[in-house]
Amino acid sequence: MAKLGKKRRVRGIESKKSLYGRMFVLPWEIGIILFFLVPIGQSIWYSFTEVWLDPIEGITTYFTGLENFKYILNEDPKFVDNLTTSLTNFTYSLPIIVIVSFIFAVVLNQKFKGRVLFRSLYFLPVIIATGVVMEFLTQSVGGNQNPIIQLSTDASNAYVSGGIDFEGVLNSLNFPAEITELMAKYINMIFNLLWDCGVQIVLFIAGLQTIPEQLYEVSKVEGATSWEEFWYITLPMVSNTLLLVIIYTIIDLLTKTTDPVMTQAYNLMNMNQNYYHSSAMMWMFFAIVGVITAAVLFLYNRICARRWN
């Protein structure tokens, strides 16, 4: 009898806790229903239909099943190309960004003179890169060549690489022209990636700061090398942040407006008023992004969480 009572009490606390959890989440659920699900549902619905915009009758839709998806995959001249370009860029950018921003965060988290200054400096990309200012930096101003950036030869890529003419430097080294061009391209690309690292650096620094100092003191007393300190303290303690940064980077890289697939879809939507093909493109792309995100979460739970937590 006593046993039964105890069991019931435990379950009572659990159900109370889940009630509390639901209370914390409830306002957000209302918000999601009011401001997110309805517009999103409409956009998904468009991808399975044909949509006409009429000034008098408004929006008319006609259900066509998977026709839009078949069209963009089989007949659209550019979609598959854009998709592969986008995913290739993503594959090499993701590890570079995560590793580079982690290195910067570790360095900026060390105690040295001028650290506050450098931190503010490395925060600049967050302020500049997400907004209108970046557009002014990467476009021509008032019809003139923008003096601040180098526009590459195809003019669609702008490199914000400190006004250094890498191609000129490489040319003076007398390498063959193809190698020079390729190297200049990759150097500029790496510098461009720096501009995508701002948020990640801030997140990593915040994560590193939550590691209690005592852990390092204990490890010093125990005689651990800094290599061991890194593997057994720093990395496990920032593992939550690491997952956060990886997923943020995935989403940021793939869904930013300069991504080829997103650019194509936005152009279709805004210039040609083609809501059905653009919606189909986007939702197919988001499905891919979702699968990548889910795979990363799954791998993290399988490998890292088990080892570190």
């Binding site: 999103i40 869904t255 986007m282």
Partner: peptide, 29 residues
């Protein structure tokens, strides 16, 4: 805080929706 600290049945689903709101850019809808 609700998602991180309390276990309830639809927790995982809600976290999935959180990620969905992060993935879908506002321009889409």
């Amino acid at each position: 805080y609700g998602l991180a600290r309390f276990k309830f049945k639809e927790n995982g689903l809600l976290f999935g929706i959180v990620l969905l709101t992060a993935i879908v850019p506002v321009q889409v809808y």
